[in-house]
Structures are given as structure tokens and as C-alpha cells.
Amino acid sequence: MSAPVSVSLLVNGEPIDAVVLPRLNLADFIREHLKLTGTHVGCEHGVCGACTVRVDGEIVRSCLMLTVQAQGASVETIEGLSDSGEIADLQAAFRERNALQCGYCTPGMLMTAQDLLKHVSMPDRPAIREHLSGNYCRCTGYQAIVDAVEATARTRAERRA
């Protein structure tokens, strides 16, 4: 029982082949096996959002997904989004507005905020709060995070115009 299973997936565009125990969740695989420690593990039952990653372009909780379920999938972590420059402006806005303090929630916040900005070009503050409602921050009180996301939406809209 519980024999290791082989799994092949893309992580930040790089092909990965691994043999893992079925119980290993995707968050732990990314952190412990691939040493990509930007993805954080908070509650381990889907409530806090710190482990948010993209799988096939959609955000998911990596603590609620088994590594073996990612067979054939394309996984993107905060390192991928950061290195490609996709969220450089969003990260800068977070810095400028002090939208982080301890930083534990920040990777998940950035993944989720970027997901919103990809789907809605100019979300209002209630829409931003709604989309981020599954990501907990215990430092900022959220105000500065909503500010940063709103500011990024505005600059991106201006750039497009």
C-alpha cells in the first residue's frame, strides 16, 4: 500500500519527473523537493491562501492538491511569475504602499491579485476584496493591499490606453 507514484509535470516551464508518495501535497512538493520556498504553507486545509499557485493557468490551493494530481499539468509558482516580470508592477505597488509586513501571505496575495487583474481590467474595491477574501493577512488590515491592487489596475489600464 501507499507505494510511490511517478509524476511528470511542468513547473515554471521546466519539465519535472519525480517519484512521490501519494500523500505528498503539491505545496510540500514545490517547497521540499524543488526548493521553491516562495509558496508558503499556512493552515493546510484551504482556508488561508498562503499556498496559492497556478495550475494550467488557474489559481488553486496547493495544500489541497496532491502532487500526483498534477500529472501532466503546468504549475506556476510565485518564483515563475516573479522571474518572468509578469507581476513586477504589482510587486512594486505592494512595496510602495506597505502592502506587506511579515510577508508570509504575500506570495499568495500576489498570485490571487494577478489572477483578478487577468480576468477584470478595472475591478472596484469591493471586487478586489471579494477576490482576495480567501487570502488571510494578519499584519496589514488589507487596506494597503487593496490600495496596491487598485493602483496596479489603474496603471495597467493607462498603459493600455
Binding site: M1, S2, V5, P22, R23, N25, D28, E44, V68, Q71
Partner: peptide
Amino acid sequence: MKAVAFAYARA
């Protein structure tokens, strides 16, 4: 916490 060990079958 982490899940207890289990076997896995992909239908």
C-alpha cells in the same frame, strides 16, 4: 497537518 499515508489509483 498532513494526510495519513494512503494508496492512490488513477481511474
